[in-house]
Write a protein that binds this DNA or RNA. Structure first.
Length: 423
RNA sequence: GGUGAGGUGGCUGAGUGGUCGAAAGCAGCGCUUUGCUAAAGCGCCGUACUCCAAAAGGGUACCGGGGGUUCGAAUCCCCCCCUCACCGCCA
């Protein structure tokens, strides 16, 4: 959520930066300012009336204590009370409208965020490793999975519908090995605290991290209980500290958490295709940081490096790109995507999206810290996948497949999997 | 799911329908005293919004959340949420 004062005082810059996203968000600024103006004027009038009422009521109290008759004043205040409640209602409505407008407004892209219309304009920042060469035509993970018995899409569809998977035998073990490997890496070597969080969350939490109110159709909802299935661990983990004021010494907070992620993927391209690349449910390790404005840029770089390290240790070729203003997510102010090479797809797959949100989420969830001068300020929040599991598995299987159809696992994974190869 | 107890400022903890944004203590900040430490004394010490060009300074709201009664609610009434305890059910 953007600060209404920022919008009020730097209107032109806000409009310009929102416009750089494309879309129509910047066109709503005018309405928001109008609403703000109306709201403040209503509030001021209301406060004057309340002040009068308060003063007169006190007077009634004092005069009653002296045994004087107060019926005339009481009638006067009663009339005032009606006016107060009307104005109060009007002012509350305006405030709600303003909040709703602000909640639908995306974050401002960071000054350093490259300007561009769409994904085509995302600059590549760096690559690591090289595309593996094969003496044969590399297979897709779908074919490898079939011949090695790693997963079963048909039976998953039988129980849950399309775009779900059932990991079987060695596939299930590989999934579990990856989870443990990733959590151990981030907690033992990269300095994150492991968290095990609920997978089902209240709407407020989703408003906090900005999946709601705008992206409701992407979420699985449990109507009876007003709960949603978490689309990413970002939601439960970042919201752990909502409504809190954190002591400066406790920052930065760094969490790593495993959760399954549930996404309806309404309208997504590629949902119908077979394979592990886009599913309604998938496992992910998420890295979340809560920090100060001063440290947030550095912490984003460090978090991105922590995610990249996963691919380096596994020996997987990848590239890191930065999302341009036209492609960056709703709440993000700056985003790096890490894309791993998948030979069977002959293309890169996004396995991690590392973003800084500035104080955008913190404002929504009222997450603050006490600075050196004892002032309460909004925190900055950062998160990124470290990493998504199915696509990592795709890259592993496709990269390390052998001519005989088996898959040789990287050394770091072998103790977790309990063997050096599949098949 | 049932019953009971409770939710007050950073913490502990008072609070009569009226002058309560809220006693007191602790913690924190500043000053004084002291050779230093300790101690004592005095003062300051919530958040959000809003008015004023800004500062200074006003104002309003907030005692878990939302409604209601009243001229006036932390205090009375209703609904909800949360915490704790016990019971039931259950992995």
């Amino acid at each position: 959520m953007l600060d209404i004062r920022l919008i009020r005082e730097h209107t032109d810059q806000v409009i310009a930066r929102l416009a750089s996203r494309g879309g129509e968000a910047h066109l709503r600024i005018h309405d928001i300012l109008e609403c703000d103006k109306e709201r403040r004027s209503a509030e001021t009038r209301l406060q004057h009336l309340q002040s009068d009422r308060k003063r007169m009521s006190k007077e009634i109290g004092m005069r009653k204590a002296k045994g004087e008759d107060t019926s005339a004043v009481e009638a006067e205040v009663r009339a005032l009370g009606d006016e107060v409640s009307h104005l109060n209602e009007a002012s509350a409505k305006l405030e709600e409208r303003q909040r709703d407008l602000l909640l639908h407004l995306p974050n401002l892209p960071h000054e350093g965020c490259p300007i561009g219309a769409d994904a085509e304009a995302n600059p590549e920042l760096r690559t690591w490793g090289e595309r593996p060469a094969f003496g044969f035509t590399p297979k897709s993970h779908v074919d490898l999975g079939e011949s090695l018995g790693l997963f079963d899409f048909e039976r998953a569809a039988k129980i849950s519908g399309s775009a779900f998977v059932c990991f079987t035998g060695a596939g299930a073990r590989l999934e579990r090995a990856l989870l443990n490997f990733l959590l151990d890496l981030h907690t033992r070597e990269n300095g994150y605290t492991e968290m095990g969080v609920p997978f089902v969350v209240r709407p407020e939490a989703l408003v906090g991290t900005s999946q709601l109110p705008k992206f409701e159709e992407q979420l699985y909802r449990c109507d009876r209980d007003e709960l949603y299935l978490a689309p990413t661990a970002e939601v439960p983990v970042t919201n752990l500290h909502r409504e809190e004021i954190i002591a400066l010494e406790q920052l930065p907070i760094r969490y790593a958490a495993y959760t399954p992620c549930f996404r309806r993927e309404a309208g997504s391209a590629g949902l119908g295709t077979r394979g592990l690349i886009r599913m309604h449910q998938f496992d992910k390790i998420e890295l979340v940081k809560i920090t100060t404005p001063e440290e947030s840029a550095r912490e984003l770089e460090a978090l991105t490096a922590d995610a990249e390290r996963v691919l380096q240790i596994l020996g997987l070729h990848y590239r890191t790109i930065e999302l341009c203003t036209g492609d960056i997510g709703f709440g993000a102010t700056r985003t790096y995507d890490i894309e791993v090479w998948a030979p069977g797809q002959n293309g890169y797959l996004e396995v991690s999206s590392c973003s800084s949100f500035g104080d955008f989420q913190a404002r929504r969830m009222n997450l603050r810290y006490k600075d050196g001068e004892g002032k309460n300020r909004f925190c900055h929040t950062i998160n990124g996948s470290g990493t998504a599991l199915p696509r990592l598995m795709v890259a592993l299987l496709e990269t390390f497949q052998q001519a005989d159809g088996s898959v040789l696992l990287p050394a770091a994974l072998q103790p977790y999997f309990g063997s050096d190869r599949i098949g």
